[in-house]
Write a protein that binds this DNA or RNA. Sequence first.
DNA 1: AGTACCACCTGACGGC
DNA 2: TGCCGTCAGGTGGTAC
Length: 264
Amino acid sequence: MPELPDVETLRRYVDSTSLHQEVTSVQVRDRRILEDLSPQVLGRRLKGFQFEATGRHGKYLVIQFGEKRWLWLHFGMTGDLSYFRGGPSETEHGKVMINFANGYLLAYINIRRLGKVGICDDRDRFAEDRGLGPDALEIQPGQFINRLEGRRGMIKPALMDQGLVAGVGNIYADEILFQSGIHPRETAKTLASPRLKELYRVMKRVLREAVDRRADPKRMPGSWLLPRRNSEGRCPRSHGPLKKIKVAGRPTYFCFRCQRPARN
DNA sequence: AGTACCACCTGACGGC
DNA sequence: TGCCGTCAGGTGGTAC
């Protein structure tokens, strides 16, 4: 799941469920999820504190629990959160369970365990320390164009490069390129600045609309690629069959009519 | 600088 | 039914 719109949806979920209640204990079912942190230290740091505020940078969710105390979560490909009343045993794939004084708990779920959870004390340096570029919903057009133009590589991997722009993953990269009419293998260098500006606008619009729809594929507009992103899918504009290729090792869907590769 | 490939993981699915 | 290969919305490392 978790690209920017999914993580933003999870952030709002935490806001609406888990703030301003005392943490009574923490269980860690799989310590490999923790980055440079033992379950004991995590429990000790959180116990007695309350979650006060949330933030997000790209695909990272951060939760403040004190002055200069932040819990950060990355969800990998299969991460999720669930807030419920009951015992931690009720979530088979819950890897980190945070128990609150009201008897509810917030479970960090991750089937494939390709995610990480950690603690940091400097929110302002978080993105920099992890080598993340500006958040895709915060980045300014000039910044975006500067970061992409002149690159010799393909546009799709550039769009997904978290060091350039943070938040776009495989699914939304396909959507953004589709709506921009850009072939995923096009080199960034061949995209003149007006086209990059258009790409920027489409990126923002797609991500905002996806957030508005709570990142739920069933809610996405019929004009989007996302709901048809499978081997039988057809382009919502040209009605031609979607092509499936690998770009930078990732499955990539596009419409060969609407997304013509530029001939240099 | 860019690319290709591997590794980390588990579960779902199609083919035989 | 059951086994097996392949694939999946992420990232980091390595080698060319």
